[in-house]
Design a protein around this nucleic acid. Structure first.
Lengths: 101, 101
DNA sequence: TCTGCATTTCGGAAAATACCGATATATTTG
DNA sequence: CAAATATATCGGTATTTTCCGAAATGCAGA
């Protein structure tokens, strides 16, 4: 995991929020508003897009940026892509920060 | 402490290095090369500039950016400005990251 | 196959950041 | 005061990031 790359990903409020939302999807994405949700797979792009108030393209960009630096995992199921936090990576990040600084 | 602001400060390799160097100044700034060093006050701009390989203006910019977000403290003594890590702020940062994510 | 929906990719305009040199300010010293 | 040194500030150019709309891709149902 590249610390600088991760910090770049985290220096945007919406991307940080996405990570917070994905920590407890049921809490941040009320069931009745959820287009699609699978606890195993995560939340789909449209729902994140709606909550973030971004265009589809920006939402997709942000999510793939978070994925590229390992903080979330993506699973494509049919026409949907589900994103969920990579909890192991989040723990590694915390550890790296603690050890580096 | 504004998490996003801190992440922006940390998304530059040289600024991250400065924080690492200032963690153990004696280790990263050999005594014979040190123009000036006071364990209480920290390391002066010229020494950081030399080690970072940056211009004086950029070094000053970077240090004041780190200071603005609270990660280092500056002390002016005569014509020198000494910078040192704010260990309390570093601990707070770790705590915030742990709690937020 | 045609249509529609979810998502990604692409190209670009606007804003932010990186980093410098020139200049200004403060301090020390002769 | 004048010269030298350390640092800060300013202005600008080059690069990166932000965020969008249009177009492309992939999948599902009629």
């Amino acid at each position: 995991m590249e610390l600088i790359t991760v910090f770049k990903a985290l220096s945007n409020e919406i991307r940080v929020n996405i990570l917070i939302w994905l920590k407890e999807p049921r809490l941040h994405f009320p069931a009745e508003e959820l287009q699609d949700y699978d606890p195993k797979l995560g939340v789909c792009v449209s729902d994140i897009k709606k909550k973030a108030g971004l265009s589809a393209s920006t939402t997709s960009d942000y999510l793939s940026l978070l994925q590229k630096c390992g903080l979330v995992d993506a699973t494509r199921v049919g026409q949907w892509t589900y994103y969920k936090r990579n909890e192991k990576a989040m723990a590694t990040l915390n550890k790296m920060i603690r050890e580096t600084f």
